[in-house]
Amino acid sequence: MSGLQGLMEGRVVLVTGAGAGVGRGVAAAFASAGAIVGIGVRRPEAAEETAAAVAATGGTPVILRCDVTDAEQSAASIQQLVADYGRLDAVVHNAVSGRSSEATDFENTTLEEWEDHSSVTVRATWRLAVQAYPHLQKTQGAYLLMSSPAGIEGSERAPFYSAVKAAQRGFVRALAREWGPDHIRVNSVAPLAISPALENMKILEPERVKRIEGLVPLGRLGDPESDIGPPSVFLCSDEARYVTGQTLVVSGGRFTSL
């Protein structure tokens, strides 16, 4: 990860949903880039591996209880980072519903399941933005949403996940225009990466994972830290100072027409 060295030196970043998967990888990548990383998780006891990954890069892990569906917790997480480190340079909203890897029976399910997805991915996207705004305004920082290719092409199996991830793309485009005058940049990444659900699938259904990998021109699923982390860091760094309102698809070439 030497290519990231210094890109975020002295910067303070909050990553939500950082306890595992892409969130953990992205958190470690920001640490590699020199950032102080707020590891936002629902259960702090589940953040130890991420903290270790951050520490392994020489970074400073800051574990924060941050259930993004709880307005007080997300506000307190931001406040703590600002109080302890004096600034907030970026928020990476990666948290998703715990049901995001489940299939949705669209024709028979209830609003409760929709709200489960929406509260984490839509409501919290707005709320985190509002809570972070005064701090990002001061640092001319960045807001990065971890979206999904499903939010572009629509998934038969995951219609709710698709819709809420698409919502984030509409949000990014509009907010990039709204916050442009403040020099706050707003972007998203649509990753195809190893997730905890895919790790399980590798054990239970290895042939299915092979089929998925076979659809990726680069022949493998992305690694959260080494494949998804660097583009995420880039988008929050000064190197991307002229990039806003964009969704970067990081999928090994799996999705080329989005």
């Binding site: 572009i152 629509g154 998934s155 698709s162 698409a166 509409g170 949000f171």
Partner: peptide, 9 residues
């Protein structure tokens, strides 16, 4: 955007 992609799904 959410509705448009919901329609695709």
């Amino acid at each position: 955007e959410a509705i448009r992609v919901m329609a695709k799904a």
